[in-house]
């Protein structure tokens, strides 16, 4: 088991409330997407899960153990942070060596193989790495340390399209070989969408929804056609947003009811995760 329970977490920084009474259960061995706009509280939540900061109230349990100051619980988690936590003068290979001391299951051979695949020069100092290679460096450590829970905060920041593709593939083959709980926080929703099993969307410090991606996608659709017909059809449905263009109207729906009796002249099309996210989190 590697379940994470987040119970009534509130985090206040000075005058701003970053998270408001967040309660969530992260099920074991699933890939989660943690989505939210800038400042929604994603990083704060991930930092709380690894006790890099302390909650104002509430608690986070990993397999029933509170994470606060808990070496055992913390050794099951590895978190890729946006900020660099490694000493600036440390070389990549010595960071690998040290990680092995803190995470005994760290697979050095695998790390070197990944470094080779991504073209990361392990004799370089961490501070001399470009933004993209810094992400690659952290991602390699995350994939190699063989922990039960991986938290990836913007893992592909600064990576080019080829490296992003390679990263997603390596992540999936790592996950298939060693199932683990993975939470990915990213703004590149479109390209990560198919990797995710479940999704958590947070908005202004509150959980907006938690659902299986497939289930969520099956509820969402775009409806377009003559304005009066669209209005008639959507009047008893859950509409996320709508836009008009002359006499035509497009409505974005998130609705479970079956799409029956669709009047002539109305067209249904797919609403993908990214569009859904945009409409859900727009102010």
């Amino acid at each position: 088991m590697n379940q994470i329970e987040i119970k009534g977490i509130t985090k206040v920084f000075g005058e701003t409330t970053a998270l408001k009474n967040v309660t969530l259960t992260i099920e074991p061995n699933k890939i989660y997407g943690l989505l939210g706009r800038n400042g929604a509280g994603k990083t704060t939540l991930l930092n709380l899960m690894t006790n890099k900061i302390f909650p104002t109230s509430g608690e986070i349990l990993i397999d029933g153990q509170n994470v606060l100051e808990n070496d055992q619980a913390l050794s099951q988690i590895y978190c890729i942070a946006e900020t660099n936590l490694y000493p600036e003068n440390m070389k990549v290979k010595s960071a690998f060596d040290w990680t092995k001391k803190f995470y005994p299951d760290f697979d050095r051979g695998y790390a070197d193989m990944l470094a080779h695949k991504f073209g990361l020069d392990t004799s370089k100092k961490i501070k001399s790495l470009s933004a993209g290679y810094n992400s690659i460096f952290k991602m390699i450590i995350a994939l190699s340390c063989q922990v039960k829970i991986l938290l990836l905060d913007e893992p592909v920041l600064g990576l080019d399209a080829n490296h992003r593709d390679l990263f997603y593939k390596e992540l999936l083959s790592n996950y298939s070989a060693h199932p683990k709980t993975i939470i990915i926080s990213t703004h590149l929703i479109e390209e990560a969408a198919d990797l995710l099993e479940d999704v958590i969307i947070i908005k202004e410090g509150e959980v907006l929804l938690v659902d299986q991606v497939e289930n969520l996608l099956s509820k969402g659709y775009t409806l377009s056609g003559v304005a009066s017909l669209v209005d008639e059809y959507i009047k008893d449905k859950n509409v996320l947003a709508q836009s008009s263009f002359g006499g035509l109207k497009t409505a974005y729906l998130l609705d479970e009811s079956a799409r029956v009796n669709l009047p002539q002249g109305l067209e249904i099309s797919k609403l993908d995760l990214q569009q859904m996210f945009i409409h859900l989190t727009n102010v």
């Binding site: 699933k30 593939k169 999936l172 083959s173 298939s176 198919d194 990797l195 497939e214």
Partner: peptide, 15 residues
């Protein structure tokens, strides 16, 4: 295998 499909097409293994 599902793993090969998952990795090749970048989709969740459960899918």
């Amino acid at each position: 295998s599902t793993t090969e499909i998952s990795v090749t097409y970048r989709i969740n293994p459960a899918t």
